[in-house]
Design a protein around this nucleic acid. Sequence first.
DNA 1: TATGCCGGGCC
DNA 2: GGCCCGGCATA
Length: 406
Amino acid sequence: MTFTFQPEDLRRESSKKTSHHLFPLAMEEDVKAADTRKANRILDQEKENTRSICLLEQKRKVVSSNIDVPPARKSSEELDMDKVTAAMVLTSLSTSPLVRSPPVRPNEGLSGSWKEGAPSSSSSSGYWSWSAPSDQSNPSTPSPPLSADSFKPFRSPAPPDDGIDEAEASNLLFDEPIPRKRKNSMKVMFKCLWKNCGKVLNTAAGIQKHIRAIHLGRVGESDYSDGEEDFYYTEIKLNTDSMSEGLAPVSPSQSLTSPPTFPVPDCSRTEAPCAKTDPKPMTPLSRSAPTTLYLVRTDHAYQATPPVTIPGSKFTPNGSSFSISWQSPPVTFTGIPVSPTHPHPVGSGEQRQHAHTVLSSPPRGTVSLRKPRGEGKKCRKVYGMENRDMWCTACRWKKACQRFID
DNA sequence: TATGCCGGGCC
DNA sequence: GGCCCGGCATA
């Protein structure tokens, strides 16, 4: 995950946020250093640089420690000055709780934590930056566009200006040269629940601001919050590992009502377009109504068994109709052999079925996907081999059990 | 290894 | 169509 900050953004943000709660120590150190060198004019300039760099550092850490931040464009003189001053700044910042990596060898320090196995693509050129972006962008010619576009979705810890980057987030990660992983890869996002919006931001403040500005129309009163926005957004947790790797759509644990369609890898890269489709009510769950489940039952010829008292189930005969409720969970996929509660990634079973059928009998017209094995106890297990006569007919015939349907 | 059940054969 | 079983996939 690489964040790229344009210098303009940084400066603007720096000027905007003069009080940082996260790094008071760094600020104090900075102020102290400034006081001691007040008489010296050269050092005064250096102080200015230090301050700017300090602000840059703080801004980058606000973004979070898992983000690549390529160096901002500066002139060569400024760079040289930065090299000197940044070392001091980093020394003072090394006590920050968010930055534990030794500032002397920043690339190693960070690459181990969230860029494991990623070969450094650049000669480290002695650039002071503690963050890994020097790996990503050529230090001599800092070219943020690629990395900036690639990792824009995660840039938004900066609360404002979120409408723009979401619009641009559609063209992301075309070629990932270096897979970036984080150990602790759960990322909390905030999703706007406003109808037909589905905007996803990284911070609660950002989403609140978005709701205030866009939906509640409180553009002017940006800081005023009566808590009403809380009703219009929800918190979701994203597994950024699956996001960054773009592998099988492992559904990350989502805390609330976020639809399961959201964290699909492509969606994670282009959060805005996919988030727009979130409110669509068509989910795998909705496709598997219990009525469908029982209709499927009636298709089998094996179910001509008489009604039997089923242990562990509520069986309520009621004239011609009856209601059954047993341990089979309501979330049961009959049409699509993919269960969201299945341990392994969603779709892997189906893919494996496809692969199996393709390999074994490609020209088959009717591809019959083997149903995932039911987890509930079947007649064989319940009654045992000795009571085989108590099995349902299907079980006796080694067919899919019709009594304990999963 | 035990279990679930698909595919197919036999009557 | 009813019945049975070989054999494979999966837990």
